[in-house]
């Protein structure tokens, strides 16, 4: 395509300052992106505790992973989280966005308050929800007992703990998705509804056949972002449950962290990291394909 002389001519015609401007990025890229990427490919074939020399062990890290019940547990936990978090997130965000998508007094005030958990540290959110989820005195169980319902073992029962974290994460992130849905709703041309109105379409039908299909790009964005978020879940289980009870909230990231920094299994942790990264990428690609095919 471009011969050496051509490149040389382009080099002579280029702005010299440009090279100065992009040089810091090239150094940064080589050090903090390219090197770690290559190094993780090397690490996954080694056993290494970071102190003594690395030891080549071939594919043993992968063999170990496929026989590691905790790896599968953390993967299943993440899927449980996503199975609850994504539908809940979409339903709540869409419901609130539909409420807000009208001429209202204090509209931006409502939006600002709903958005507040997004900007605050996950550590703060976790501390607050820890108190609300308390079995004996937490807000939720107080409300439940006051209307005559039994207490829910939010964080103490293995089958409730991960769903509880998924609910908390929804509360924290839903503000972003409300805003995304609002943008999506405002991008739907009004003529579509007018035409449907003339054809006598009921408002439920308008919602099903105009609003939802037109929001498809927003739904894709939400599913993809939530999936990436779910696979990065760390500080919430770390602070709230430490991965328990009975490993039921051990997330992928928490497991990688434990392997690397409690047990000093750098090679195995890198193997888990690569595997989880490949899983995220493929899940995201599949989701996009599925949702686009649906539309």
């Amino acid at each position: 395509m471009s011969s050496p002389t051509n490149i040389f001519r382009r080099f002579k015609r280029s702005d010299r300052t440009a090279y100065v401007f992009v040089l810091p990025y090239l150094v940064y890229f080589a050090t903090f992106v390219a090197y770690p990427l290559l190094f993780s490919l090397i690490l996954m074939f080694h056993r290494w505790n970071i102190v003594t020399p690395m030891e080549w062990i071939g594919l043993k890290n992968f063999i170990r992973m496929f026989g590691d019940p905790l790896f599968f547990k953390s993967l299943v936990n993440t899927l449980v989280f996503l199975a609850i978090h994504i539908p809940l997130q979409i339903a709540v965000a869409l419901a609130i966005a539909l409420l807000l998508n009208a001429r209202l007094r204090f509209r931006s005030f409502f939006r600002a308050v709903y958005f507040m958990p997004v900007v605050v540290s996950g550590v703060v959110v976790t501390i607050l929800w820890q108190q609300m989820y308390l079995f004996d005195y937490g807000v939720f169980n107080s409300i439940l007992t006051s209307i005559g319902l039994p207490r829910v073992p939010w964080l103490v029962d293995p089958s409730f703990a991960m769903p509880s974290i998924a609910i908390m994460a929804t509360w924290k992130n839903v503000g972003i998705y409300i805003v995304l849905f609002l943008v999506g709703l405002q991008n739907i041309p009004g003529e579509l509804y007018e035409a449907a109105e003339l054809d006598g379409a009921a408002s439920a039908n308008q919602f099903l056949h105009i609003t939802l299909p037109m929001l498809n790009p927003t739904v894709i964005a939400i599913v993809v972002l939530s999936t990436i978020g779910g696979f990065s879940l760390f500080i919430e289980p770390y602070v709230l449950t430490g991965g328990g009870p009975m490993q039921s909230t051990l997330s992928g990231m928490l497991y990688i962290y434990n392997q690397a920094f409690y047990f000093n299994h750098m090679g195995y942790a890198a193997t888990l990291g690569i595997t989880f990264a490949l899983i995220v990428l493929s899940v995201v690609v599949i989701q996009r394909k599925l949702i686009e095919a649906e539309a």
Partner: peptide, 11 residues
């Protein structure tokens, strides 16, 4: 995904 680069960046 940052899961790939986390451990080597620490190293």
């Amino acid at each position: 995904p940052f899961q790939i680069t986390l451990i080597p960046q620490y190293v």
